[in-house]
């Protein structure tokens, strides 16, 4: 489904990603972990099409298409969804109106008729239940004055409405208490299916208790330095990142 090959990216002349390789197949959940500043969020942003980042090497194939050649909105229409670490407040645009526009723009891209108001509302209500999102939030301006937990829940709600093929969760657990974390994880899990894949970017293992990954990758200094089964996350939780850093540095010295 997603194939990242030697991806390099920089921002303001500083190289952050230094050759990322990753294969994600339908149905899989991949966790990307790593210490602060290792490039986790950059990877998520580059995949979603954030223009501040300059791709300096490599390529990304998503369902047979060159992902990096598509605009952010085209990637979304092709089925990529990024749950933001810091969801943006947009005064004056209600969540419901925003989502209606998004759903219909994506349908237009895919040659489908727009959803009529009644069907859209019905669908949205069902999805809101899924993440236990209060209807009243839908009528409020997008994320404006929302608590941290409400913002993250809104991200998962949007994901449920847009039904992406590949969901990328960027530090979705940050700033969440355990109840909010559980609700968010439930939402994500309910969307798991053999056709869909998820990339969970996180600093802590905590979220992975609820969203159990098939693979864990450790990102450090812009490269994936270690990959393994879900147990790797437990090891990281127990031992921290220092032993990985030491391994990488030892390797660098050997070279």
């Amino acid at each position: 489904m997603l194939s990242i090959n030697g991806l390099r990216a920089s921002i303001e002349g500083k190289e952050i990603l230094k050759g990322i390789n990753l294969e994600v197949k339908p149905g899989e959940v991949h966790a990307i972990m790593g210490p602060n500043g290792s490039g986790k969020s950059t990877l998520a942003s580059v995949l979603a099409g954030r223009e501040e980042y300059e791709v300096t090497g490599g390529n990304v194939i998503f369902q047979g298409k060159e992902l990096l050649e598509l605009a952010a909105e085209e990637r979304a229409a092709e089925g990529i969804f990024l749950a933001f670490q810091y969801p943006v407040e947009i005064p004056g645009v209600t969540t419901i109106n925003f989502l209606k526009t998004a759903v219909n723009e994506i349908r237009k891209y895919n040659g489908e008729e727009p959803l009529d108001a009644a069907r859209f509302l019905k669908m949205v209500r069902e999805k809101a239940k899924l993440v236990r999102m209060n209807d009243s939030l839908l009528k409020r301006a997008l994320n404006e004055g929302f608590s941290g937990g409400e913002k993250k829940r809104n991200e998962i709600f949007q994901m449920a409405v847009l039904e992406p093929k590949l969901a990328i969760l960027d530090e979705t657990d940050s700033g969440l208490d355990i109840d909010a974390l559980r609700i968010v994880a439930e939402g994500v899990n309910s969307l798991r299916s053999p056709e869909r894949a998820t990339i969970v970017v996180t600093h802590y293992q905590r979220l992975l208790d609820y969203i159990v990954p098939d693979f864990v990758h450790v990102l450090y200094k812009g490269r994936i330095v270690k990959s393994g089964p879900k147990e790797l996350a437990f090891e990281l939780e127990e031992k921290g990142y220092d032993w990985i850093k030491a391994e990488v540095e030892a390797e660098e010295v050997n070279q």
Binding site: G49, R50, E73, A76, F81, L82, I90, V93, A102
Partner: peptide
């Protein structure tokens, strides 16, 4: 805000117009 909207599939002109209307 523009990137946030585009990442949800809303084209740039449409996103601009929504933001300006707001």
């Amino acid at each position: 805000a523009l990137f946030y909207m585009r990442s949800r599939g809303i084209s740039k002109p449409e996103a601009m117009s929504l933001l300006m209307f707001a």
